[in-house]
């Protein structure tokens, strides 16, 4: 049966039509489950390699900073975690939006599984930022615009998780939580631009700014390696979580019964 499906989509010739066909197949829970299962080991090993390289580069190879000494090494987890907390939120809201408008089951699954991972990144950002703030600024916490808006991001994630799990009916839960996620998107540009819009204790951007990054290359490379490692890690764990969620949601279909009893 799978053969026939593949044959059907092999007919279109243009790239756009092929892409459409791919997305259509991706929306099928079974195809998603199988493809994700194949991707997970690759992404997982990629994460391990990148993490090893990034940690070696950041903790050993990179020189100390001229102002902050070795304390700046927190940057290699703080900044990737912060970037990812924003990225994951945008992805979650985007998937939620697709689920709301087109009622695609996989989109709801992706939105739901983004939340706990994103929340953990936001939490990591706040913890490491706090531990960086104490020795450098002289305080664990201040209520400036950057720190407060990142804290609100964590609350948005937690609110999303609570709302999603409080509603029994899956469709209603997905709809309500997607609305919450979409409302919360306003916070994303606020976090990003807070350091430009208002006077904050938090410093301005280092990497993405006019005139290029103001960080020396042997510090930038480990930072980018760690960022890539975080990104791959996120996608690995997203797929693992999404597969479980697909199994649960499709529990009554024949292929799931086959899959769970075959092992």
């Amino acid at each position: 049966m799978k053969r026939v499906q593949r044959g059907e989509v092999a007919i279109p010739t243009s790239i756009t039509r092929r892409l459409w066909a791919f997305f259509h197949r991706l929306a099928s829970p079974r195809y998603f489950y199988e493809l994700a299962g194949k991707l997970v080991p690759w992404l997982g090993w990629g994460t391990v390699l990148l993490l090893a390289a990034g940690l070696y580069g950041g903790l050993w190879f990179a020189p100390a900073d001229y102002q902050q000494g070795d304390a700046y090494r927190i940057i290699f987890i703080h900044v990737p975690a912060a970037w990812m907390s924003l990225f994951v939120y945008v992805l979650m809201a985007g998937a939620g939006f697709i689920g709301l408008v087109w009622r695609i089951k996989i989109a709801d699954v992706v939105a739901k599984t983004c939340a706990p991972i994103g929340a953990s990144f936001a939490f990591l950002t706040l913890c490491t930022g706090s531990l960086w703030g104490k020795p450098m600024w002289g305080t664990y916490w201040v209520w400036d615009a950057r720190l407060t808006s990142e804290l609100i991001l964590l609350f948005l994630y937690l609110g999303y998780i609570a709302l999603e799990s409080a509603i029994e009916d899956r469709r209603t839960a997905a709809r309500a939580s997607s609305v919450l996620a979409l409302v919360g998107v306003v916070n994303i540009p606020i976090i990003h631009y807070s350091v430009d819009w208002w006077h904050t204790l938090h410093q301005g951007p280092t990497v993405f700014k006019l005139g290029g990054p103001s960080i020396s290359l042997d510090m930038l490379v480990p930072l980018l390696l760690m960022t890539l490692a975080f990104k791959l890690f996120f996608f690995t764990m997203l797929l693992v979580r999404a597969r479980t969620e697909v199994l649960e949601r499709e529990a009554n279909s024949a292929w799931v019964r086959e899959t769970v009893t075959s092992q």
């Binding site: 000494g69 304390a71 953990s120 490491t128 890690f233």
Partner: peptide, 20 residues
């Protein structure tokens, strides 16, 4: 030793490891 910042640096990395 981390140039005297061992507590802050290693606690950060420990939290990172736990969360991962």
């Amino acid at each position: 030793h981390m140039g005297g910042f061992a507590f802050y640096v290693w606690t950060s990395y420990a939290i990172f490891a736990l969360i991962f």
